[in-house]
């Protein structure tokens, strides 16, 4: 990709797990060798089951966690090496919207203080007055009333809180936002409002998103490209429409067959691709292809060689079925 704003290059994020002092050190392989790129003004969707490492990947990209191996490049710069002013600039441009609107706002601060804080940290705008004006402006952008400024977060509903947290990230005029399941804690009608708000902001401020979710419908709607993740690895990347119409990887197929269709007759006709068993523990990832233990089409080679992402049509897929 030519104008990639973000490049994730073979990133692995492991967490050491110590059961006892004498036990052999184990690693929880939350993200296990992931590579992809996000273009300017693009929304890259990331889907997968709970616990497959989506959030850890998102957090690695905003440098909450340092990758164990591999690198993340933002505008060509390795973010692991940023220090001082450069790091501060990175923090200003790359932001994150969190999943739980009840936990992501400091309960002891007023809405005004919450939204003003990023500007205080980065010393944006000359005077306190200008910051206050910007806060009211931001509240309006996200569809809240300026007189909400002196209220505390507990006085708002989930959707309103998510708007506050969006306003907080926008205070810095970011260029890239990691949306870590921003709608999964909200009810369906509010989800649509937040998605529309995110799209509106994207067009107005020219922002790129990494949109993490397990709601496949919402991801399809907002993303241009989608990556499907299983047990720490990307199994398929494709154009949003293409991935939904013609999924390649057996896991993506199973994932898409789980989307409920609001029509009982169609739903009954569809052959559901139920997966057997549970997702294996990321402490003990299967050899070769991580998905082989649940894959209906597993072959002997799957246990031995870990499939690499390869281009098939317009998509990329990591599966031995498509080996050339």
């Amino acid at each position: 990709m030519q104008n990639a704003i973000l490049k994730v290059d073979h990133v692995k994020t492991y967490f050491p797990v110590s059961t006892s002092i004498f036990a052999k050190k184990q690693y929880l392989k939350a993200v296990n060798d992931v590579s992809f790129e996000v273009g300017e003004h693009e929304t890259f969707g990331l889907v997968g089951e709970s616990g497959c490492g989506k959030s850890t990947l998102g957090r690695t990209i905003v440098r909450i966690y340092d990758p164990t191996e591999g690198k993340v490049f933002y505008k060509g710069q390795d973010i692991g090496r940023l220090k001082g002013d450069e790091l501060k600039k990175f923090r200003k441009e790359v932001q994150m919207i969190f999943q739980d609107p009840y936990a992501s706002l400091n309960a002891r601060m007023t809405v005004g203080e919450i939204i003003r804080e990023p500007m205080d940290i980065h010393h944006l705008y000359g005077s306190k007055q200008e910051r206050e004006e910007r806060v009211s402006q931001l509240l309006e952008t996200v569809g809240l009333k300026p007189d909400h400024i002196r209220r505390y977060p507990h006085e708002f509903s989930g959707g309103q809180r998510q708007r506050i947290s969006i306003a907080r990230t926008l205070a810095l005029d970011p260029k890239f936002i990691v949306c870590d399941e921003p709608i999964s804690a909200l009810d369906v009608s509010i989800q649509a409002q937040i998605i529309n708000l995110l799209e509106k902001i994207q067009d107005e401020m020219n922002i790129s998103y990494l949109f993490i979710a397990h709601d496949l419908g919402a991801v399809k709607h907002i993303s241009q490209r989608i990556g499907a993740m299983y047990l720490g690895s990307l199994v398929e990347i494709g154009e949003s429409e293409e991935l939904y119409r013609n999924p390649l990887h057996p896991y993506t197929k199973a994932l898409l067959s789980a989307i409920p269709i609001p029509d009982p007759q169609v739903m009954r006709k569809r052959a559901a691709l139920d997966l057997d068993g549970e997702i294996p523990s990321p402490l003990n990832v299967p050899t070769g292809c991580a998905f082989r233990t649940r894959c209906p089409k597993a072959m002997p080679v799957c246990a031995e060689v870990k499939p690499e992402l390869q281009t098939v049509g317009t998509s990329q897929v990591a599966c031995h079925l498509y080996a050339k």
Partner: peptide, 10 residues
Amino acid sequence: EFALAAYVLG
């Protein structure tokens, strides 16, 4: 998350 948010804000 609010502490992580503050961290990400710099």
